Simulated scan of single mutants.
Amino acid sequence: MLIVLVLFVAGAGLLLLGLDKLHTAVPTCYGHPMSPGEVCHARVTGPVTDGMPEPHDSTYREQLDNLTSGGWTAIVLGLVLLALALLLAVSFAATTIRDHRE
């Protein structure tokens, strides 16, 4: 039954973390907050090496989408963990009821 509690706490925590991330995300450009309509111009400080992405300019919307995608991932994982906790709790309860009837 401890696993149900752990799954429930982890799921609820991820859900709350994701919701917080969606509501408090503020895009920044090199540490400076951006506002809608702004473009963050990429700084190239040296040569781009193999395997590294080419720096590119990004809009406020692109920066915000990058920030909030992690929030949505946390929400989905939290919901999956909560559903699994509920499924296990129902299974444990059904097993306990069946064992008491016998």
Rank of each mutant, 00 (worst) to 15 (best):
M1D: 04
M1H: 04
M1Y: 06
L2P: 05
L2A: 05
I3T: 13
I3R: 06
V4K: 01
L5N: 05
L7P: 10
V9S: 10
A10K: 05
G13P: 12
L14M: 15
L14A: 05
L14W: 09
L14P: 03
L16V: 09
L16T: 11
L17K: 10
L17H: 05
G18C: 04
D20L: 09
D20K: 12
K21W: 04
L22M: 11
H23F: 11
H23Q: 03
T24K: 02
A25M: 06
P27Q: 03
P27K: 03
T28S: 07
T28I: 04
C29G: 10
G31I: 11
H32D: 15
P33G: 02
P33C: 00
M34C: 06
P36S: 04
P36G: 02
P36F: 02
G37D: 10
G37I: 07
V39D: 00
V39G: 03
R43S: 10
R43I: 13
R43K: 14
V44T: 14
T45R: 13
T45L: 14
V48P: 08
D50K: 15
D50W: 14
D50E: 15
G51W: 10
E54V: 14
E54P: 07
D57E: 13
D57I: 05
D57A: 12
S58K: 12
T59P: 07
T59F: 05
Y60W: 10
R61F: 09
R61H: 11
R61Q: 15
E62D: 05
L64W: 09
D65W: 00
D65C: 01
D65R: 11
T68I: 08
S69K: 08
G70F: 07
T73I: 14
A74S: 13
A74W: 05
I75K: 14
I75E: 02
V76Y: 10
L77A: 00
G78L: 04
L79T: 09
V80F: 15
V80M: 15
L81I: 01
L81A: 08
L81D: 00
A83K: 03
L84E: 10
L84F: 10
L84N: 07
L87N: 01
L88T: 04
L88D: 05
F92D: 15
T95H: 05
T96P: 00
T96A: 13
R98Q: 14
D99M: 02
H100N: 12
H100Q: 10
H100K: 12
